[in-house]
Amino acid sequence: MTRNSLRARLATAVLALALAAPAAAESIIVQSTTSTQNSGLLDVILPQFTAKTGIEVRVVAVGTGQAIKNATNGDGDVLLVHARAAEEKFVADGFGVERFDLMYNDFVVVGPKADPAGVAGTGDVVAALGKIAATTSAFASRGDDSGTHKKERSLWKLAGVDPTSASGAWYRETGSGMGATLNAAAGMGAYTLTDRATWIAFENKADLAIAVEGDTRLFNQYGVILVSPQKHPHVKAKSGQAFIDWLRSDEGQSAIAAFRIDGQQLFFPNAKR
């Protein structure tokens, strides 16, 4: 009898717990790329914003393509990604209010220390990709339509190479996030394109090292957009805008600049006001 009622109470408690909505003060959802999250940037700057405004920021970190798709569906209040053309289309289609430059970091090409393509130390990323293709050295691509993947494709185009014709041979599309792709590159001794932030924070570098950096064409601009409350009335426009305003304010910009890993600055604020 006692045991039965105890069990019944337990079951109810479990159900109640499971179905209870999370205690919500004001919170917004940010659809973001994995690079901002995996690098640890958001872990550092978001608490500063929350302390100031009381607004909790919930980050869904996915590839740029999926982030934009989710935001298009209205599943988020703010979009924070790095794929300029797609961002502008998002706004033009009426899903976003306005796009703001926020900060940049840069991409680097990393590869095995043995450097089979002989590209280490070059400052010309296009020439380097040409050599990788010419020597059929293994190259791991995100292959997931993310911002990084889009960047990589534009660079191949500049190099006049269609790597997908070698798909499965030296060109290997992982179809996964940056971290997984870096793990794969480390595993098979391949070159890959990665944003510097993820690279620095990445802990399984194994035999990989930076091969190409410093080319202006490796520039990686982040933009931030409020999801349109006209398209999706439930969007928390006020809180979302407050977040965007804070990111672009002196305070937010210096928080971004102050973020370091191993003494290196990863993101360079460049919001124009």
Binding site: A18, A20, A21, V60, T72, N73, D75, H232, H234
Partner: peptide
């Protein structure tokens, strides 16, 4: 999803 049939409940991204 907000764009889906049950979007009005706002359940996405909750436990």
């Amino acid at each position: 999803s907000r764009a889906g049939p049950l979007g009005a409940f706002g359940l996405l991204y909750t436990p």
